[in-house]
């Protein structure tokens, strides 16, 4: 097992193995990832999306790697900053549940795209 997917996206749960499925919110996924990073698990993909709109998503999938004996301070900084930013951005906004299925689809597509970038067959995860 090279990669682990931390996700709360039901679409990803259906299709992939090597899951750390979080029964909870986007923020809960971030917190789970933070805990794993503090245990020495490597952060492979960035915890945040690339636009404001994707912060409205109820779902998020983040790719993690191997567990090592040391904690990567850069990864700690990234996940901690991501949590601060996520909370800040959700202060005045709310999760867009109306389009939950569409967010699940896009999150799943972006995840597939990231695996393509990693040259890993998503179907074999």
């Amino acid at each position: 097992m090279k990669y682990l997917i931390a996700t709360n996206n039901p679409l990803v749960k259906k299709k992939a193995d090597n899951l750390c499925f979080v029964e909870g919110s986007y923020e809960d996924v971030l917190i789970k990832v933070r805990d794993l990073v503090y245990e020495g698990v490597e952060l492979v993909s960035h915890p945040l999306g690339a636009s404001m709109r994707m912060l409205f998503s109820p779902y998020r999938s983040i790719i993690l790697g191997q567990k090592s004996k040391t904690i990567n301070p850069f990864h700690v900084e990234i996940i901690e900053n991501s949590i601060i930013n996520y909370r800040k951005n959700l202060e005045a906004r709310k999760v867009d549940w109306v389009h939950a299925d569409d967010y699940a689809l896009i999150d799943n597509e972006l995840l597939k795209s990231t695996f393509k970038d990693l040259e890993v067959d998503f179907n074999k995860i």
Binding site: S45, H46, A50, F74, H75, I78, L110, S113, T114, D117
Partner: peptide, 9 residues
Amino acid sequence: PELTTLEGK
């Protein structure tokens, strides 16, 4: 390109 993976970045 702005990629998603940290290695890519």
